Amino acid sequence: MSGGTALLARAIFDGDRLVPDSALLIEEGRVRAIVPVSEIPCDAERMDTQAALLCPGFVDWQVNGGGGVLFNETPTREGIRAIAAAHARFGTTTLLPTVITDAPEVSAAAAQAVAEAIADGDPAVVGVHFEGPHISLEKCGVHDRGFIRPLTREDHDRLARADLGTVVATVAPENASLEDIRTLSRAGVHVSLGHSNADFATANAAFRAGAQSVTHLFNAMSGLHHRDPGLAGAALSSAHVYCGLIPDGHHVHPAMLDLALRAAGHRRITLVTDAMSSVGHADDRFELNGRTVVRENGRLTIADGTLAGSDLDMMSGVRIMADACGAPFHDVLRMASRCPAQMLGLHDRGHLRPGARADILALDAERTLISVWIAGDRQER
């Protein structure tokens, strides 16, 4: 073994295990190996990262915006580029641009923009998340009620486009039938249940039909009750269902973050940001479907107080989750990298084993992000 670059740090988390006093060998944008420092090839370029820990880049499947750009308002190739650049600064190296309930032409433009980003080889973009419009009126949250509707044949065709990479569709059984869920799942679409008042039995029927996850667990869904477990209870008690969770300190109480982790574990909890345009940007106001969203103390709301996405970046979310739950830090890192990558079927992301794309984060002893590599290229921060 020879050549490449050897990244040195006090420890390396490869997505499954913590390896101390080793070097991460990368070459041509891929991970070659993790080796003891004494076994670094003599012709490899050594780089002391000054890091306490190297870990995989974060994978976020719910990103509405960032850097002053909201995908619904700017569903373009340029919009995606700005959003991805904003989140790369906070350790997200793979993401799904997310378009929420809107007019059909906005969803169509978002799909085309993602197709162009993938065709251009955008290193961060692997697909798209359509969060609505096939959701529940009763649990619509900040989604515009005027655009909510049942799923149609045309919607099936858009969601199953072959040029969109990994597609996540958040739907509710109220507006997407079991047959809709079966058909989408068979077409390769990852169906996630969310914005739904479905009861326990209905939710479990949807999981049996092919739904594989829930969108922002606890938020905008039928909640836990000792006589009616609801969608949240169905998700937590279903051994193969992934649970997206927003760890911003506003969407979910710390005690419920801990409860979710105890119930579902770090192999089923996937941290998401649900980030809006305010992440990585100074403006405290922006527009969503003609309504003004205001940021105050890290909380985003419209005029009536309804939460409107989050002001969360993934590195902050990891720290909040670790502090709330007292879980081993590498387990929380897994929820932001390895677990979502597995959920999305991304076999070369979320880990640092041989053959993985070299998406790497360097953290200091205070769990502060100091460097980011995407496909082996160190990013400007």
Rank of each mutant, 00 (worst) to 15 (best):
A6S: 07
A6W: 09
L8V: 10
A9M: 11
A11E: 06
A11C: 09
D14R: 02
D16I: 01
L18W: 02
L24E: 15
L25R: 04
I26D: 12
E27P: 06
R32L: 14
R32D: 03
P36V: 10
V37H: 15
I40C: 07
C42S: 11
E45I: 11
M47D: 13
M47V: 11
M47G: 04
A51H: 00
P56M: 12
P56L: 00
P56Q: 06
D60A: 09
W61S: 03
V63Y: 05
V63S: 05
G67H: 02
E73A: 08
I80H: 09
F90I: 13
L95A: 09
I100W: 01
D102V: 13
P104I: 15
S107G: 13
S107K: 10
A108S: 10
A108T: 08
Q112E: 04
A115Y: 07
A117C: 12
G121C: 05
H129I: 00
P133N: 06
H134T: 06
I135T: 06
S136R: 01
S136I: 04
D144M: 10
G146E: 15
R149H: 08
T152A: 13
R153T: 13
R158N: 05
L159T: 05
G165V: 13
V167M: 13
A169L: 12
A176C: 06
S177K: 00
E179V: 14
R182V: 12
T183C: 13
A187M: 06
L193H: 08
A206T: 10
A209V: 15
T215E: 12
M221G: 04
L224S: 07
R227C: 08
G230W: 07
A232P: 13
A234N: 00
L236K: 12
L245E: 07
M256H: 06
D258L: 11
L259W: 02
A260F: 12
L261K: 08
H266W: 09
H266K: 08
R268Q: 02
T270K: 00
T273E: 10
D274H: 00
V279W: 02
H281K: 01
R285P: 07
L288Y: 11
G290P: 02
G290V: 10
R291P: 07
N297S: 07
L300R: 01
D304R: 00
D311Y: 14
L312R: 02
D313Y: 04
D313E: 13
G317V: 08
D331K: 02
L333Y: 09
L333E: 03
P340S: 03
A341H: 00
M343C: 08
R349K: 05
L352T: 06
R357Y: 15
D359Y: 15
D364G: 05
A365I: 13
E366W: 04
V372I: 13
R381A: 14
